[in-house]
Design a protein around this nucleic acid. Structure first.
Lengths: 199, 199
DNA sequence: CATATGAGTGACTGTACACTCACTCTTCCC
DNA sequence: GGGAAGAGTGAGTGTACAGTCACTCATATG
């Protein structure tokens, strides 16, 4: 009994997870479907039975990524007792920081942004950011400007993690990584950055 | 007399510009050196005489990109009369917005971020952001938090332009694109156009 | 048992691409 | 004129990859 068979519908989400991990490492064009297949422990021929094309496989991974992001934001909101708009956004930021501790979900978004010229991928990415932005906005009740800043610091966080700035000693790197920790118990950007630190 | 010869040292920067344009369109892995060669009007064989590898060609393009970004920030600083730290950062933001009106320099940074796993490219990207961050910090005299916010909104701007959000009607897109215009005479952040120029 | 359905794969195909090489043509200097 | 130095290319080579196909094997049911 070498391999236990499962149904295609059971296997598809497993392959999607494998695709998230693989595409997160080397991006849309830098990852072969053989890489995804290896990660999933199946043959690449079977990946093409499960998904019609590499493009659709990537889109599936990206959708799954945003599912998890929105879920995490929701859990963050549930977990806080501070129900002010700023408190709710902070709670979401913290939850996001915990979620992306392993980098995969974050890197997938970065790679997707670079592949957004592919129409289906661009559309999926817009869909994802629409969900996140609308969720942050309606669930926090914050002003548009505050929501915009929330997303802006999310994007900065992507840069910091991509370039491994959070444990770089250079002053400029410390400036960009201020308050951003990707190790699990850290916090993400403080919302009150009005008159912050010293130089 | 079909083609006027020029020296390799004259031609290299021309090819670098072509590389910026080509890589900006389809990214590091999505662009062939034949694409760059076509853009530059030479054969791909000759591109390899001018640059040792595709990777070094991309690094050259990225360095040139950051040269232009830092230059633009400098011109922004020269052009403003408001010498408060916030005024200087605003002026830099405005200059950056004008510089990236044609998207190439911005998209190249986005694509570079996705290719940062390639060691030489990651290093070049860190070099570039180091220059920008240090320049913004020392020339504005602003707090670390303000400089961080400056870069964060720059990253948001990358997202907005990549996803073409600035002329999308959806509310979430309007929220993210608040105050961000990429058409030439638009402004970034809460800054006004001060120079008296005709159309 | 027979036979159907669907899971899963090895071996291919066609193409695209990074990089090389042998070569030609131009310019310049004697 | 001759010939060295360098600009510039056409025609490759080797490899890697998206997608296909014909097939095997497991399970299910009558």
């Amino acid at each position: 009994m070498r391999t236990k068979l499962s149904t295609a519908d059971e296997r598809r989400p497993l392959v999607t997870s494998a695709a998230v991990a693989a595409f997160a490492r080397t991006g849309y064009r830098g990852t072969t479907v053989a890489d995804v297949a290896r990660e999933a422990g199946i043959s690449s021929a079977y990946v093409f039975k499960l998904f019609p094309s590499k493009e659709q496989l990537f889109v599936g991974a990206l959708d799954a990524c945003f599912d998890q992001v929105v879920d995490a934001l929701g859990r963050g909101v549930e977990a806080t007792t501070d129900h002010t708009p700023e408190g709710l956004l902070d709670a979401m930021g913290l939850a996001y920081a915990e979620l992306i501790a392993d980098r995969s979900l974050l890197m997938l978004q970065v790679h997707a942004q670079s592949a957004a010229e592919v129409p289906e991928i661009g559309a999926a990415l817009r869909r994802g950011y629409a969900r996140v932005t609308e969720f942050a906005s309606t669930r926090s009740g914050a002003t548009d400007a505050a929501v915009q800043r929330f997303i802006a610091f999310g994007q900065l966080c992507h840069l910091v993690v991509t370039l491994d700035l959070d444990d770089a000693p250079e002053p400029w790197a410390r400036t960009l990584a201020l308050g951003i920790r990707h190790p699990v118990f850290g916090a993400v950007a403080p919302a009150e950055i009005t008159e912050g630190g010293a130089s």
